[in-house]
Computed example of a mutant assay.
Amino acid sequence: MDEPIRDFLRGEGRDGRGRRLAEVLAFDDARLEAVHDFIQWLFPLPDPSQAVPGSPVLGAAEAASIRADPRAREGLRAALARMARFYAATDHWLVRHDHNHRRITRIIAAARDLLGREAAAAFHAAVLARDREAGGVIDPVSLGYWERALG
C-alpha cells in the first residue's frame, strides 16, 4: 500500500521536495520560518492545504496506519518537539496576525488526531503560555481556531 506520509514520518520516505524527516527536523529556526512546504508533511490533515497546493492530504486508512505504527508516531512526536522548540525560541510570531498561527492550528489538529489529545494539549498550552508572556498579542480569532483544533 502506498503511504507516503507514514513512510516520511517513519524516516524512510521523502517529502514532495525529496527531503527525509531527519533533514527537516534539522532545519534551523530561520529555515523553519522561511520554508513553507514541510509543515503539511510533518502534521498531515485530511483537508487540502490552502497555503501550499499539492501538499499531501491524509486519508483515513493512512491515518489509521500512522496511529498503529510506533515509528511513525515517534517521528511525529519528534516533529512536535521540534516545533515546540521553535515557538519557544522565536518571537516573530507573537503578533496579532502571522502565518505561524495557521501552522499552530494544523499542528494541534494533527497531534490530536494522530497522537492523542494529551500531546496536542501540551503543545497548545505551551504556545498559549508564550502568548501570555508577550502580553496576549495574538488575535482572538486565531486563539479560537487553536481551541477548536484541540477538540
Rank of each mutant, 00 (worst) to 15 (best):
G116A: 04
A61D: 15
F86H: 14
L115A: 03
G136E: 03
G13P: 06
E12Y: 14
E133Q: 13
W146S: 03
G54Y: 12
D131H: 11
V24E: 02
R67H: 05
P4Q: 03
D69V: 05
Q50W: 14
I5T: 08
R31N: 02
I39D: 13
S142R: 07
V95G: 03
L114M: 06
D37K: 09
A61L: 09
A119G: 00
S55C: 04
V35S: 07
V95P: 00
R73G: 03
I5D: 00
D15I: 02
N100T: 01
F38M: 09
S55D: 06
P48I: 09
R82W: 12
E74G: 04
A51F: 12
H92K: 10
A120Y: 09
R130I: 03
G151N: 03
A126M: 15
D98M: 00
I138N: 00
V35M: 11
D7L: 13
F27N: 05
L25T: 04
H124N: 07
I104F: 10
R148T: 13
V57W: 04
Q50A: 14
A26S: 10
L32S: 00
A81E: 12
A88F: 11
V137P: 02
I39L: 15
R6F: 05
A68H: 06
L114Y: 06
D28W: 07
D139H: 15
E147Y: 14
T105R: 13
P53S: 06
A72S: 03
L25W: 10
A84F: 13
R73Y: 11
Y145F: 15
L114C: 01
R106M: 08
A111L: 09
S49K: 00
A63K: 07
P48C: 10
A121V: 02
D15Q: 07
A63E: 08
A22S: 10
L45Y: 07
Q50N: 09
A125Y: 10
R82V: 08
